[in-house]
Design a protein around this nucleic acid. Sequence first.
RNA 1: GUGGGAGUAGCUCAACUGGCAGAGCACCGGACUGUGGCUCCGGUUGUUGCGGGUUCGAUUCCCGUCUCCCACCCCA
Length: 426
Amino acid sequence: MIKAIRGTRDLLPPDTALWNFVEKTVGEVFGAYNFQEIRTPIFEATELFARGVGEETDIVSKEMFTWEDRGRAQSEKNQLLTLRPENTAGVVRAYIEHNLQQRGLNKLYYIGPQFRRERPQKGRYRQFYQIGAEVIGPASSGSESPMRDAELLEMLATLLDRLGVTGWTLELNSIGCAADRARYNEALRQALDPVKDKMCGDCQRRAVTNPLRVFDCKVPEDQPIIEQLPRISEYLDEPCRQHFGQVKEILTSAGVPFTLNDRLVRGLDYYTRTAFEFTHGALGAQNAILGGGRYDGLSESLGGPPVPGIGFAIGEDRLVMSLGKTAEEVSRKPDVYIAPLGAGMNKEAIRLARELRRHNIVAELGDETFRLKKSLETGSKLGAKYALIVGENEVSTGVFALKNLATGEQKSVARNELAGAIRASQ
RNA sequence: GUGGGAGUAGCUCAACUGGCAGAGCACCGGACUGUGGCUCCGGUUGUUGCGGGUUCGAUUCCCGUCUCCCACCCCA
């Protein structure tokens, strides 16, 4: 048997109803903040991610699905292509390519699959889905304003509430601009140098390669040492400090609760200033529902104009897991099960189904070879509200038997009143 | 990439130290020709993840492999 390959999975009904519920709500909520959808290709030039996400990140250095194109044209020959591991680089590439800066401030969102070659576990798949949004534009359009950071975070809080996700936590930090991080990295290295020998193996490696990651360490023995390390908040320059201060102020006045976490660092190279994560307890070790932050230098590093931006990505698989609702609650059941009774009734039944469906009634259609008993049973199992009996008596008189499958009550309804009778109960 | 656990019917799970693969639920048919949910009877439940090995005999023991789950790394 051919099976879905490692780290990929089929989403089947009724679960797909949950995904549709999430995506529909996302469209409504983001739409209210004047975000518009963008769709970028599923694969891009490998170079885009190497330059955008960062050559040294785990994503680029060991998790990408990359292959060499076999095109014969000179322009395609030996071109390295990669299934997108995230979508921000693609959005910024499209922004640059189509000169979207001419449109002022862009507020874009996307929903789609991403690919990373990691070992699968709870909340982690090789093909996974992200819902993301980006606010990007020239500084004169207000893209750099702390208002954008706060608005984005407030929108996320609203979305989670609308979806019925309870018990989330917003963790907030500022990781400063590039110069701040360079000074901070240096300070961390110096602070770690005398103590790193007492730390775990991972930390000893991080202390040299990427000191910021030391803060991810979960080894209990290392925590007292980590507590003593200098904090990024002490290394922010004045503009960054003020920017972060305003983000916090606006957020507070908007009534969005948050927790400061100066150990929160983002893993992709392009992040600057505001960094955040929404976490949820029901997710196991992969407890981040979504993460994001500012990326004021990303466009330039991809050869584009200097356009500040901020964005986030939601792990849709994880979001669906943390949903309080069940698939049953968000599924639409048939309003009516149409039961043709006896030879020749199929033709009548499909005409009735067509009329009712045009009234936005969900109708399931039986078959004339079914006995009435089987039809009623089938309708019940499907969760239909009514059974509509289509027999010779009904067709000849134009008055149909409409049975409420929950109560057993049955009444006679004229053909032109059927839609009204069925919809009355919706 | 590393470590641990698990794979038996559509689902949840049994099967002593190696001895005829089972139960519940679900599904299909009948009792019951135009009125369901209850009851009774009957039926399929199946390459025991896959491939090898040991054995008279393997779901069971051994080796390999695949997948899933949990954790690490890292991220959403």
